Lab assay of single mutants.
Amino acid sequence: DEVTIHLGDKTIRVDGLDKELLEILKELARRGADEEELRKEIERWER
């Protein structure tokens, strides 16, 4: 499953996201997290 996250004018595509992680990323994005913060969160989950 590829998920596309839209952040204002930026788009991040991620393969096979965990549903819980997806919810966390959506919440972070709502709070104004930037792409770098979201990537760090994704990397934390992948470990």
Rank of each mutant, 00 (worst) to 15 (best):
R44M: 08
G32R: 01
V3I: 14
L22I: 15
G32D: 02
R39F: 08
G32S: 02
E2T: 12
R39H: 04
K19S: 13
E23I: 10
K10L: 14
E37V: 13
E46F: 08
E20V: 14
R44W: 15
L21R: 02
D9Q: 07
K19G: 07
K10D: 08
D18S: 15
E20S: 12
R39S: 03
E41F: 09
K40D: 06
L7W: 06
R31I: 10
E23N: 10
E37M: 10
E2G: 15
E41M: 11
G8I: 05
D15W: 00
A29M: 14
R13K: 14
G32P: 00
R47V: 13
H6Q: 15
E2S: 14
D1M: 12
I12K: 03
L21M: 04
R39Y: 11
W45E: 02
L17V: 11
E36T: 11
L17T: 08
R31W: 08
K19N: 09
E27N: 10
D9G: 10
K26L: 15
D18A: 15
L7C: 02
G8T: 12
H6D: 14
D34V: 06
K19F: 08
E2P: 11
L25M: 01
L7S: 04
E35D: 07
A33P: 00
E27M: 04
R47P: 14
L21F: 05
L21G: 01
K19A: 11
V14E: 03
D34F: 04
G16K: 10
H6L: 06
E27A: 07
G16A: 10
G8Y: 01
E43Y: 01
W45S: 03
T11R: 08
E23T: 08
E27R: 07
V14W: 04
D9F: 01
E23L: 09
D15I: 15
T11C: 03
I42W: 04
A33W: 06
V3K: 12
D9L: 03
D18T: 12
E37L: 09
E27C: 09
H6N: 14
I24A: 06
E41V: 11
H6C: 09
E20K: 14
G32C: 02
I24M: 09
V14H: 05
R31F: 07
T4S: 11
D1I: 13
E46Y: 09
L7K: 02
I5E: 05
R30C: 07
K19T: 11
E20C: 13
I5R: 04
H6E: 13
I12A: 02
T11V: 11
D18N: 09
E27V: 02
K40N: 09
R39V: 05
L21D: 00
R31L: 13
D34A: 10
G16H: 15
D34G: 13
L28N: 01
D18P: 14
A33N: 02
G8Q: 11
E46W: 04
A29Q: 13
I42D: 00
E43N: 07
T11K: 11
L22K: 07
T11N: 12
E27Y: 01
T11Q: 10
D15R: 09
L28H: 03
K10Q: 07
I5G: 04
E43S: 02
R30T: 08
R47S: 15
E46R: 03
D9K: 06
L25A: 00
D34I: 04
E46M: 06
I12G: 03
A33F: 09
R30Y: 05
L22V: 15
W45D: 01
L7V: 14
T4L: 10
E46D: 09
E35K: 05
V14S: 05
A33D: 01
K19D: 11
R39L: 12
E46Q: 12
A29I: 15
E35P: 12
E36P: 05
E27W: 01
E23G: 10
R47W: 03
E2C: 07
I42R: 03
L21Y: 02
E23R: 11
V3C: 12
E27I: 05
R47L: 13
V14D: 03
K26F: 08
G8E: 10
E36N: 11
E41G: 01
L17K: 09
L7D: 05
L25D: 00
I42T: 02
T4W: 02
E43W: 00
H6I: 13
D9T: 08
I24D: 01
R31T: 12
E35L: 11
K19Y: 10
A33I: 04
L7Y: 05
R31P: 01
I12E: 02
E36K: 07
I12H: 03
E2F: 12
T4C: 13
E23F: 04
K10S: 12
E35N: 07
E37N: 03
K19P: 15
L21C: 02
V14Y: 04
I5K: 04
E37P: 00
H6S: 14
D15N: 04
R30M: 11
I24N: 05
G16V: 10
R44Y: 12
D18M: 08
G8L: 05
R13L: 12
R47E: 14
K26C: 03
E2A: 12
R47H: 15
K26D: 06
